[in-house]
Design a protein around this nucleic acid. Structure first.
Length: 998
DNA sequence: ACAGAAGCTTA
DNA sequence: GTAAGCTTCTGTT
């Protein structure tokens, strides 16, 4: 640690190669600390000090880290830089610069001065300069350090400073403990540091009021700079930009871009009083620093500093003395680092298996006995990760394989580098043959310091190809059951390695069939806690999370073995507990017909993916950006200030505070509601602003959620988008889709539908869309046995018109659309477990009027009231409802004494029978579909499911033959398990894109 | 970095 | 009034 006497300024040879200058962005840090930390007031007089404490902790930690760690970053020079005032030369350039800054919060103001005092107390130079921002001073010192051959680290995460990053200048974000170098800048912004100025000139900055070019965000800016080199190149050749609107805005806003560039360019020749020599880092002066900290009443930090500097706290004067614990100040280890770690206490007592109140006691029949016995065994057994072994040679693996064959069943778990099975590289495989007898086969663990060529593969691992060749016959052996938690993931991964794993049982799906709706998820950790009373190792603790995560391939093999083998062991033990319960509860056929066979079907759909046209999305994105920018300007014009329109809080303040519009409801946190519904109502009353806000929201929603996000999901290997379907995520039996969610692609508005045109068929192919018409109402007509509805569906009539006709005694012929609309809302209301409140909301009518509608409806369709009452009674009695195929959906809270919770569960259970039955029907269709297409010698492939719709891709020539097969399979899906008393109807169409096919 | 609220998209 | 997932903002560690 450099410990240099302050050199006289007359001697210039201060900083040299090897030195390292730390530049703390004091002003930036003050705001972050203030907002990140809870309010804190000095006990003796209530002086606000949270930002001061945050600042002191950060500086102290930085100084400690710097001298302790071996990362090689040891500061020899150190400065804390502040803004002098908000008025700088930039205000002369552009009067609006930072003009929208509001005054700092009341309780932050006194802390500015205190933080400067703190800096002095730390014996650090405290630097500011009138007319310049802290950023300019940092730029100046960075340059001086570079020219002296020294390194510099800027302590900040402000993007405005990233233009300074270079080979010898880095940044460090102390709050996230993250280094920012050239690669990180490129990763975050898509351009190297030297192009950050041009990027910011294009994007602008709403916080600082730098205009930029409207509608150009970081993604577009990076792409343009890539294409044209720099801002000048771009402006000179703007006429070459392909996208019409973008070209026009850039040409029109060239001046804004130029002035923005001036604003964001940091001045690196600020005439500083203090030279580099004045920034030499000095040892903190213990008593001086402790005096300050005591004055601030920071007891913990005072104690730490006292320990590290061997200062006796009692010897130090403070203006406001606090009672200090007497156990400090004994250690002599100056600069020896952080205080000794407290030993972590042993985790508290053994977890107990949750006993499930809903479970019936053993009945005496075999399945119930077995299931009770297994449960007892499961909870009694210990799980001991130290007993697991790593299989590191072919001979051992062969022995395990032989043992598994003998057993006839094994649990399996693939370890990979990614949660996306389409991108995951196989790292290892774990297997379990009997409870506690589990092993891990590491295949591709690396030392973590391998180069890009894949070096660093650890020794004593069976080569992937060899291990998979040995495992393949076992994994494909029809006489050996494979037990897996979440089989779909493993199927996708293993099939990419040419292995078709089967037959299998999936513990996640068994749990889902048994316990959908009961508290707790169906993931392995939840199930292990619930059934085995054991909390398994957590992957995050091995591999980290977020930005700091490492691949599982970099986890050391010993730790990986404990984790991975345990996963397989738990899956096996869960299977032993859960599988017998299926038979005990009569749920085997639900599992075997609706769940298990769907797994490979969905795995294939996910692997196929769907083709998405990048150009269409990028064009749409540009259009949306411009539309949004236009709306934004109009809104600013009306409001008179540049608020953040995306902030409901600010929006509420403006609309209902400043502008005095009649505020409707408040949200549960007490904020004004700014929902679309409410804004529409205001617009209907003739207000101009709410309409524009609704428009802006639509445009930005479409842009951020769809046109900007979807291209990022295009798999570079397949050039298609592969969603992930969750089989056990909903309570009702529906699937869900994520990463990306392809079940909520817009369709209602013309603008939104354009996004569907980007989902396209391959050349020479068509997309086929087949969707069930009114499936939930048909299910309702069937289960509630409503004669009029059954007849209407049998006749192929307009169901909402018939409903209206029955209710209001008006003929279907010439019916006003408003009458039909109300009947339609009631029909949907029934499916959702109707309430007068909800119907009133939906139709914007008074609640008693809605109540009268419902009453009338029940008079005309008494069977529906009976159905609703039966469902509620059944759910209350059993704690679950069932679909017509026997799927159970639990509502444990239906007996709640809280009326609103109870009512909610009643509505949900009414809906679940209908939604769940519809979900079962389409599941059956999906399970039957592949064989039917195969039999008809058709090559159509199922790609997507959207609850009541299936999307296929097929060659042009087979379109006509495919449509009737698809329709038939879907319409007959309930058969032969159930014969419905209402026909199902499917509409199917083919086109080049999803919009036209739907 | 993460969690919750608000808002919006779908069936 | 049912069932989902994603983005942005906001507050906090």
């Amino acid at each position: 640690m450099a410990w240099t006497a302050k050199a006289g300024r007359a001697i210039p040879a201060g900083m040299k190669k090897g030195d390292h200058l730390f530049l703390v962005d004091g002003s930036g840090y003050i705001f972050r600390a203030y907002h990140a930390l809870p309010p804190l007031n000095r006990k003796s007089d209530g002086l606000p000090t949270n930002a001061v404490l945050g600042f002191c902790n950060m500086v102290w930690k930085l100084m400690q880290d710097a001298r302790n760690t071996n990362v090689g970053v040891v500061p020899t020079h150190f400065a804390v830089i502040f803004d002098y005032s908000s008025k700088t030369f930039r205000s002369d350039l552009y009067p609006e610069y930072k003009a929208n800054r509001s005054a700092p919060p009341e309780d932050l103001i006194p802390q500015f001065g205190l933080i400067r005092q703190a800096t002095v107390a730390f014996n650090l130079p405290c630097i500011e300069m009138e007319g310049f921002e802290a950023d300019d001073i940092i730029a100046t010192y960075s340059r001086l350090a570079r020219e002296a051959g020294a390194d510099a680290t800027i302590i900040s995460s402000d993007k405005d400073l990233m233009q300074l990053v270079g080979p010898t200048v880095g940044m460090y974000d102390p709050m996230k403990d993250r280094q920012i170098g050239i690669p990180e800048v490129i990763e975050k912004w898509g351009v190297p540091p030297e192009k950050m100025i041009d990027l910011q000139a294009l994007t602008g900055d709403s916080v600082d009021n730098v205009p930029g070019v409207p509608g150009i965000g970081p993604k577009t800016a990076a792409q343009l700079l890539e294409q044209f080199g720099d801002l000048d190149g771009l402006l000179a050749r703007a006429s070459e930009i392909k996208q019409e609107k973008r070209r026009e805005t850039i040409i029109a806003n060239a001046d804004k871009a130029r002035i923005s560039r001036e604003l964001v360019t940091l001045k690196n020749d600020v005439p500083m009083k203090e030279g580099l020599d004045d920034l030499v880092l000095h040892e903190p002066d213990g008593p001086k620093l402790i005096g300050f900290l005591k004055t601030m009443e920071f007891t913990t930090l005072t104690r730490r500093v006292a320990e590290a500097t061997a200062t006796e706290i009692g010897d130090v004067q403070a203006s406001a003395v606090t009672v200090e614990r007497a156990d400090t100040a004994h250690g002599p280890d100056v600069g020896a680092g952080a205080p000794p770690r407290q030993p972590i206490p042993e985790s508290n007592g053994a977890a107990k298996p949750a006993v499930r109140g809903e479970d019936a006691p053993p009945q005496g029949d075999t399945p119930s006995l077995l299931s009770a016995l297994r449960l007892e065994q499961g909870t009694a057994r210990k799980i001991d990760p130290s007993a697991y072994t790593a299989i590191r040679d072919a001979a051992t693996l062969k022995a395990w394989i032989a043992e598994a064959r003998e057993a006839g069943a094994l649990a399996l778990d693939a370890e990979t580098t990614s949660s996306d099975p389409m991108q995951a590289d196989l790292v290892g495989v774990s297997i379990a043959i009997a409870p506690g007898r589990a092993a891990y086969v590491p295949l591709a663990h690396t030392s973590g310091n391998g180069d890009l060529l894949g070096g660093g593969l650890l020794e004593n691992q069976i080569p992937v190809r060899e291990a998979l060749a040995l495992l393949k016959p076992l994994l494909e052996d029809r006489s050996v059951l494979k037990i897996v938690q979440d089989m779909k993931y493993d199927i996708v991964v293993m099939s990419r390695h040419g292995i078709e794993v089967g037959p299998f049982d999936d513990t996640m799906l068994i749990s889902y069939v048994l316990d959908a709706g009961t508290s707790g998820g169906h993931d392995l950790a939840s199930l292990s806690e619930k059934w085995l009373g054991h909390a398994p190792a957590v992957k995050k603790e091995l591999a980290g999370s977020g930005k700091n995560a490492i691949g599982f391939d970099q986890v050391d093999i010993e730790r990986a073995t404990k984790y991975a083998a345990e996963q397989a062991d738990i899956a096996l033990q869960l299977w032993q507990v859960l599988k017998p319960r299926l038979a005990a509860k009569g749920l085997v056929s639900v599992y075997e017909r609706l769940e298990r066979p769907l797994v490979p079907v969905l795995a294939r759909m996910e692997q196929r993916g769907i083709s998405v046209d990048r150009q269409i999305l990028s064009r749409l994105s540009g259009e949306l950006a411009q539309g949004a920018a236009r709306a934004e300007e109009e809104i600013y014009g009306i409001v008179g200030e540049r608020i953040n329109i995306g902030s409901p809080k600010q929006l509420g303040d403006i609309l209902f505070g400043k502008m005095g519009l009649p505020g409707g409801s408040k949200t549960k946190t007490g904020q004004w509601s700014t929902s679309a519904q409410l804004l529409e109502d205001l617009a209907a009353e003739g207000h101009e602003l709410p309409r524009k806000i609704v428009d802006w929201r639509q445009l930005t929603k479409l842009k951020s959620t769809y046109t900007d996000a979807l291209p990022g999901f295009i798999n570079p290997g397949t050039n298609r988008v592969h969603t992930s379907y969750a089989l056990a995520a909903t309570t009702t039996g529906r699937l869900s889709s994520s990463d990306p969610n392809l079940q909520n692609i817009p369709v209602r508005t013309a603008e939104g539908r354009k996004i569907r045109t980007a989902f396209i068929a391959e050349k020479g192919h068509k997309l086929v869309s087949a969707d069930y018409s009114q499936i939930e109402l048909r299910v309702l007509a069937h289960v509630a046995e409503i004669p009029q509805l059954k007849q209407a569906f049998a006749d192929g009539a307009d169901i909402h018109a018939i409903t209206a006709s029955e209710m209001f005694n008006v003929p279907v012929e010439g019916m006003p659309s408003e009458v039909r609309r109300r009947a339609k809302a009631i029909n949907f209301g029934i499916i959702y477990g109707i309430s007068a409140f909800g119907l009133a909301n939906q139709l914007s009518i008074p609640r008693d009027e809605a109540g009268a509608y419902i009453k009338r409806y029940f008079e005309r369709f008494p069977g529906i009231r009976d159905y609703i009452e039966e469902t509620k009674a059944y759910a209350r009695e059993h704690g679950f409802v069932e679909t017509i195929f026997g799927r159970r959906i639990h509502y444990p809270e239906i007996r709640s004494s809280n009326p609103s919770i109870r009512a909610f569960n009643e509505r949900a259970s009414i809906n679940a029978r209908l939604q769940g039955t519809a979900a079962d029907i389409i599941r059956r269709a999906m399970v039957h579909m592949e064989e039917a297409l195969d039999k008809a010698k058709l090559s159509a492939r199922m790609l997507l499911q959207v609850h009541d719709e299936l999307i296929f891709e097929t060659v042009d020539e087979e379109v006509e033959a495919t449509l009737p097969v698809v329709r038939k399979v879907m319409e007959n899906a309930p058969m032969p398990a159930v014969s419905m008393s209402v026909p199902l109807h499917v509409d199917a169409r083919a086109a080049n894109n999803w919009d036209e096919a739907h």
